[in-house]
């Protein structure tokens, strides 16, 4: 398991100690969970979730949210200007 690559995909920064510990823990978890490989699933068809209940949304205009309520949670702003971190 390449923990560095995994951290990059997961957008997580870990210190060396954390990396070592998490790697060890995840390997132990997978070692225990590998028993599911022994289950015969040849009679089962793969589907991500059985969504027999699901229906399409109504073709109507979605409800409108109060703009102020939405942007109140923006981490950094000045009135209606939203400040994002530097791209470069």
């Amino acid at each position: 398991m390449d923990i560095e690559k995994l951290a990059w995909i997961a957008k997580m920064k870990l210190d060396e100690k954390e990396k070592k510990e998490l790697k060890k823990e995840i390997e132990k978890i997978l070692e225990t969970f590998k028993k599911i490989q022994e289950v015969d699933t040849s009679d089962i068809v793969f589907e991500t979730i059985s969504l027999s209940n699901t229906w399409f949304r109504y073709d109507t205009e979605p409800k409108k949210f109060d703009e102020e309520k939405i942007i109140q949670n923006f981490p950094k702003r000045e009135n209606k200007k939203l400040e994002v971190p530097r791209l470069l």
Binding site: L6, A7, M12, T41, I44, F46, E47, S50
Partner: peptide
């Protein structure tokens, strides 16, 4: 939270998907 994010990221990666996530979904359906 970090542990679960790492575990989930690993088992849904292209190389591991079939062995772990797909298998887990099949066992769930069984």
């Amino acid at each position: 939270v970090k542990r679960r994010i790492f575990l989930g990221t690993f088992i849904t990666s292209r190389e591991e998907f079939g062995k772990w996530y797909k298998k887990a979904v099949l066992v769930r359906l069984k």
